[in-house]
């Protein structure tokens, strides 16, 4: 056991790490927003009266949730390119991750929609609200409030999963790491540092989402806890 640990690469390559971290944060934010929108749309569609729409969403959700993200990214990046749809690695990563997290969000939000008390819907009907009003005013807000913690966990997992995008050579933190380690041969040290950065990012993300939750959901603010 004569291994000498050396973290001196940080001094020289920290701009690469910094840019990688920023790229990971940017990617996570974009995909979280797009995935949330896609997920909400799909959740609403899966509680629609049109059977074909429900089946379509079910096929989408099941096929995404039962295949690995890595394979999905390969299909988007290499597969679509071979069919003539060429996107850059970054765009492919954004597309693949959004499709992926959209399916998970959809399942979570759907659970929230299903948990709404029928009495609420009857009351909305009695008040003569339109379907859109019921959806936007009566169903979605409490549903999102209820599943907010699950959504947060999902988006933290998503942030961690952006590391997989390095496998299709998208620029982000893990990609930066593999570049640094191929120059310095300090693989273990590089990945330990990266691990620390991801850990810090996930804690920061949970903290920010908690604040965001207090901001969006006044009931949480008053109770001081999740529902």
């Amino acid at each position: 056991m004569s291994y000498q640990f050396s973290f001196s690469f940080i001094e020289k390559y920290w701009p690469l790490l910094f840019d990688g971290t920023l790229a990971t944060i940017r990617m996570s934010i974009i995909v979280t927003v797009l995935g949330f929108i896609l997920g909400t749309l799909c959740a609403v569609a899966s509680s629609s009266r049109h059977t074909s729409l429900r089946i379509l969403v079910a096929i989408y959700v099941e096929s995404i949730r039962n295949t690995p993200l890595l394979v999905q990214l390969f299909l988007v990046y290499f597969g679509l390119a071979s069919l003539g749809l060429k996107y850059s690695a970054e765009t492919s990563a954004l597309i693949g991750l959004t499709i992926n997290v959209g399916a998970y969000s959809s399942e979570i939000i759907r659970a929230g929609l299903q948990a709404i008390h029928p009495g609420q819907l009857e009351a909305a009907d009695t008040l003569g609200l339109s379907r859109l009003q019921v959806l936007a005013g009566v169903m979605l807000p409490p549903a999102l409030e209820k599943v907010y913690p699950a959504l947060v966990s999902q988006y933290v997992l998503l942030m961690l999963a952006t590391s997989v995008a390095s496998q299709i050579s998208a620029e982000e933190l893990t990609g930066a790491a593999s570049r640094i380690q191929s120059i310095t041969f300090r693989s273990f040290e590089v990945y330990i540092v990266i691990l620390g950065i991801y850990l810090a990012l996930s804690f920061a993300m949970r903290g920010l989402f908690r604040l965001l939750g207090l901001l969006i959901f006044p009931r949480q603010r008053r109770l001081g806890t999740n529902l």
Binding site: V156, L160, A161, S163, V164, S166, T174, A177, S187, F188, Y191, I192, I194, L195, Y198, L199, S202, F203
Partner: peptide
């Protein structure tokens, strides 16, 4: 739970 599985793989493999 705060680290990507991918990085876990690398750390174990090189560590």
């Amino acid at each position: 739970q705060g680290t990507p599985v991918l990085i876990l793989m690398f750390v174990i493999y090189f560590g």
